[in-house]
Amino acid sequence: MVTITKHDLIELGYGTSQSASIIRLAKCLMVEKGFAYYCSKRLARVPVSAVEEILGINLEIEEKIHA
């Protein structure tokens, strides 16, 4: 599963607060779908599919390996 963070959205051209808001909405969406894992305040990474569902567009994101 490919995931995305607020910083990735900023790199795509979204503003700082808009990126944070998108991640927050994506976390709420995942909780509504039954993934309680996303209730965590410290979690800042969500599936790209959730962000795409919120924005209504397909994002061309390549999977990065975070070391």
Rank of each mutant, 00 (worst) to 15 (best):
residue 30 M to K: 04
residue 11 E to P: 03
residue 5 T to G: 07
residue 53 E to C: 03
residue 23 I to G: 03
residue 48 V to D: 05
residue 5 T to R: 05
residue 10 I to F: 02
residue 67 A to F: 01
residue 47 P to T: 10
residue 52 E to P: 09
residue 8 D to W: 05
residue 14 Y to E: 03
residue 9 L to S: 06
residue 32 E to A: 05
residue 63 E to R: 01
residue 25 L to F: 15
residue 45 R to H: 12
residue 30 M to W: 01
residue 12 L to P: 06
residue 57 I to L: 02
residue 29 L to Q: 09
residue 28 C to M: 13
residue 42 R to W: 14
residue 61 I to P: 04
residue 64 K to R: 07
residue 29 L to P: 08
residue 66 H to G: 13
residue 20 A to Y: 08
residue 31 V to P: 03
residue 38 Y to F: 07
residue 2 V to F: 14
residue 51 V to N: 09
residue 2 V to G: 13
residue 61 I to C: 02
residue 57 I to C: 00
residue 58 N to H: 12
residue 67 A to Q: 04
residue 66 H to L: 15
residue 25 L to I: 08
residue 60 E to T: 05
residue 21 S to T: 13
residue 8 D to M: 02
residue 58 N to D: 15
residue 23 I to F: 04
residue 64 K to H: 09
residue 61 I to R: 09
residue 26 A to L: 03
residue 31 V to T: 06
residue 21 S to I: 09
residue 12 L to R: 07
residue 40 S to I: 01
residue 41 K to P: 15
residue 3 T to E: 07
residue 9 L to R: 01
residue 59 L to H: 04
residue 43 L to N: 14
residue 63 E to V: 05
residue 53 E to F: 02
residue 63 E to D: 06
residue 50 A to Y: 12
residue 53 E to S: 02
residue 56 G to C: 08
residue 8 D to F: 07
residue 12 L to D: 01
residue 15 G to Q: 13
residue 12 L to I: 08
residue 46 V to T: 09
residue 39 C to L: 14
residue 43 L to D: 05
residue 13 G to C: 10
residue 15 G to Y: 06
residue 52 E to V: 05
residue 47 P to S: 11
residue 13 G to S: 00
residue 15 G to P: 12
residue 55 L to H: 02
residue 42 R to L: 15
residue 27 K to N: 10
residue 49 S to P: 09
residue 37 Y to P: 03
residue 54 I to E: 02
residue 13 G to M: 00
residue 64 K to C: 12
residue 6 K to C: 06
residue 20 A to T: 06
residue 66 H to R: 09
residue 65 I to A: 08
residue 66 H to A: 04
residue 7 H to G: 06
residue 48 V to A: 07
residue 28 C to I: 15
residue 26 A to D: 14
residue 30 M to L: 09
residue 23 I to S: 01
